[in-house]
């Protein structure tokens, strides 16, 4: 990748923590943005040689192809447990999971809740695009009421298919969680906010302040059957009112963080 230059000064380039690998993510998918933000934060904090990522099952199962640091890949939903195993064995390393909404909020609900309740000193990056992307767009625990997916073809009927789960709000009720926020990858301002949240989350872990959780509202143009632009619009109009951005838990120690 050639970095564009302005008056001989490099203003934009691939973060050191990203590998040179063609992406498998669909055109318009926001996983790429999320990956880049994580890599930038790891670079800025000089954590690349100390970080171990835990990939989950779903579209981000191949996250380990893109990050230029050590990675392991967990069974579906079990990433917080696997991360716990790594962190408890290597307490001085930085350990994070990168999970989608099917992985984290459905099959992995037990693992995420208890990792948070234990105040496990790990960081969880939760990418919420309201469906199972990898398997072709099935209803997820985060699918909105009325939202059409391949297993809710007439729109999610809450009478028979239940209600969506707001993961950040749920995790924030646990005393063990230190930092729980929801951000969105829909526009430059929110992307900058998302990066700041990721930085905070890793700072929390580095200082041993406990469990940090960043939810990122994301789009899935392929499975939503929309263009990327339409998808962004749908995220703003449908997702953001239901999944409101904000800080759901900032522990006292985290509130006083300066970096």
């Amino acid at each position: 990748m050639v970095a564009p230059e302005t008056q001989g000064q490099k203003v934009y380039s691939r973060p050191e923590s990203l590998t040179v690998t063609p992406t498998h993510y669909c055109p318009g998918c926001t996983h790429g943005v999320a990956h880049r933000l994580v890599a930038e934060v790891i670079d800025e904090m000089k954590l690349r040689e100390r970080t171990i990522g835990v990939a989950s099952v779903g579209c981000s199962v191949f996250a380990y192809n893109y990050f230029d640091f050590d990675f392991v890949q967990s069974p579906h939903g079990r990433a917080p447990a696997m991360a716990t195993g790594v962190k408890r064995t290597l307490p001085d390393k930085i350990v994070f999971t990168y999970q989608g909404d099917g992985d984290l909020a459905s099959i992995g609900m037990g693992e995420i809740v208890h990792a948070a309740a234990r105040g496990e000193n790990i960081t969880v990056i939760f990418v919420n695009n309201t469906n199972y992307g990898m398997t072709g767009g099935q209803m997820a625990p985060t699918t909105l009421p009325g939202q059409k997916t391949s297993t809710s073809v007439n729109g999610r009927d809450v009478e028979t298919q239940g209600f969506p789960i707001r993961a950040s709000e749920l995790i924030a009720t646990l005393d063990g969680a230190s930092y729980v926020v929801r951000r969105s990858l829909n526009d430059p301002k929110n992307i900058r906010q998302a990066k700041k949240a990721l930085r905070t989350a890793f700072e929390v872990q580095q200082r041993g302040l406990g469990f940090s959780f960043v939810e990122l509202l994301s789009i899935c143009p392929t499975n939503w059957g929309m263009t990327p632009t339409q998808s962004i619009q749908w995220l703003e109009e449908k997702m953001m009112p239901f999944y409101q951005l904000g800080d759901y838990k900032i522990s006292q120690a985290v509130a006083g963080l300066k970096f």
């Binding site: 069974p75 079990r78 408890r88 064995t89 693992e111």
Partner: peptide, 9 residues
């Protein structure tokens, strides 16, 4: 799965 993670180290 915690064992899995620890075994990786």
């Amino acid at each position: 799965n915690m064992v899995y993670g620890a075994a990786c180290t």
